[in-house]
Amino acid sequence: MSTAASAASSKDKLIIAGRAFSSRLIIGTGKYRSYDQMRSAHDASGAEMVTVAVRRVPLDRSSESFLDHLNPALHILPNTAGCYTAEDAIRTARLAREALQTDLVKLEVIGDQTTLFPDNEQTLEAARVLVKEGFVVLPYFNDDLIMAKKLLDAGCAAIMPLAAPIGSGLGVQNPANLRIMREQLPEATMIVDAGVGTASDAAIAMELGADGVLMNTAIAAAEDPAQMATAMKLAIEAGRLAYLAGRMPKRLYASASSPLQGVIE
């Protein structure tokens, strides 16, 4: 990395509720083939925050703690995945806070099993309650500007629009909506959550102005998760720098890079 680029990245932080993160990548802990593989991917990604899910403890066997397999330096972001109502998401968030003594929550209220699209109405309802209870709420939601405004008005610490269905790896399907959201809400912390499949997708999300990207399957389901984690780390840094650099305008026709004068005859 050049001196200028290092300088830019050392003071260019992802801010969530006043907390600064050097890495703009947040990654999941699901779907890895082994704990070793997960740990290598986490290390390679440079991520400082990872998501986890809340589930019933199995009563039939003594279960080891999943959290013991995570690097203790990582910030843990519990999610409310699997919840279909505001009430269940609120209960799940409260349980997570009690168990981890953290006020962070990735709020996820699902509306449909096939698409895993969020139920925006229930998400907003849950967000309002959780913010009042002192949670730092990071809501997963549809790429809707009006919903984003309502979530911010409710006091959410960030907005986390999807780029494509969870686990689909389709890449950014909604660049126009994400760009509009960025332009209309320049002060908001916007983290693209769900849908990226490979490094270029993450770079695109960042070039559109996202402050960060949250992903799980793109890394966990890669043939070599640690290598993909490295690729994602670099893509997010590249995308961020490109966004800050300000890309050239697109044009339909060519514009010569070499002078038109002085060509030999």
């Binding site: 999941g28 779907k31 998501t51 986890v52 019933r56 403890v57 686990g167």
Partner: peptide, 10 residues
Amino acid sequence: IEIVHFVGGG
């Protein structure tokens, strides 16, 4: 009674 812990997730 619900007793919960944490598992891998996204």
